[in-house]
Design a protein around this nucleic acid. Structure first.
Ligand SMILES: [Mn+2]
Ligand SMILES: [Mn+2]
Ligand SMILES: [Zn+2]
Ligand SMILES: [Zn+2]
Lengths: 137, 137
DNA sequence: CTTCCTAATTAGAATAGTTCTAAAACTAGA
DNA sequence: TCTAGTTTTAGAACTATTCTAATTAGGAAG
């Protein structure tokens, strides 16, 4: 996933485009979520916020992640290896590789996976989640 | 997934084979999990147990599901659409189809999905989770 | 600027699903 | 039958998340 270095102004514009009020808290969290973090969880976002911005509540972190997800600016994933919801600034359709050694999640572009399905005709597929688990040598 | 009609004796034998003490509670829960249920959650197993056997505690249901999973007699899955752990008497490698209308989970045999991967050489894949979401017409 | 109104933030309570704890009840062997 | 190790159990604890209700902030109108 290409990491961008958005300015506050660019983030503000993005939020407005999506119909989200660009508050101080939301802009700050977006700096992290859109530019720095890699598939962060809510508590990773909260930890970063505690270290890097004025006092913010956990509720605001959860609210903001919800708002950003609903607006389509980020996506939320649930993976088999953890309870925690993982947030993703990559909003393209894509799959994931979970590195069992490091615990890191890596993006797998959709077109690097060719699927040939032989499902009953009446199964209408709307979306596909794929998680590869393994290690990176 | 082919559903079997195991007798108590067959279940008892299966448990012993796996090194699990065949207690009354475990045998009864296996009747449901191995013969009747379709990808049940812990609370579905508990509900069934309350209706169909002598008093049993929730803790025993959770313990038993853990013991059965550890022994390899059943498998546990975490799916993107729910918090709850889903238990599966199909211990073969296989994938799943989630029917968004009914909420039902259906097994997809491994060999009905042909994958052609173009991942970096250093990504060593140990296992693959695939969940198709859609509807059945 | 003020005023007013709505939306966002907040602390803390509540919830859901699961795991842990420690005591009581079983069970298999000796 | 005795005994040591398992299993079961009720209830507490835990984790991640959502809800509640009060407070604060922001933004258009005047
Ligand atoms: Mn990403
Ligand atoms: Mn939970
Ligand atoms: Zn991703
Ligand atoms: Zn299955």
């Amino acid at each position: 996933m290409k990491r961008k270095n958005y300015s506050s102004e660019e983030i503000e514009k993005k939020l407005i485009e999506k119909g989200v009020q660009p508050t101080l808290q939301r802009i700050a969290l977006c700096q992290y979520i859109l530019c720095v973090a890699d598939h962060p969880t809510a508590d990773e976002v909260f930890d970063w916020a505690q270290k890097n911005m004025a006092k913010i509540s956990q509720a605001t972190v959860y609210n903001t992640l919800g708002v950003l997800t609903d607006s389509g600016l980020i996506r939320a994933f649930k993976f088999p290896h953890t309870e925690k919801i993982v947030y993703d600034c990559n909003i393209e359709d894509h799959f994931h590789f979970f590195d069992e050694k490091s615990g890191r999640i890596l993006d797998i572009e959709a077109d690097s996976v060719k699927l040939n399905l032989d499902l009953p005709k009446k199964y209408k597929v709307n979306s596909i989640d794929i998680v590869f688990k393994g290690e990176i040598k």
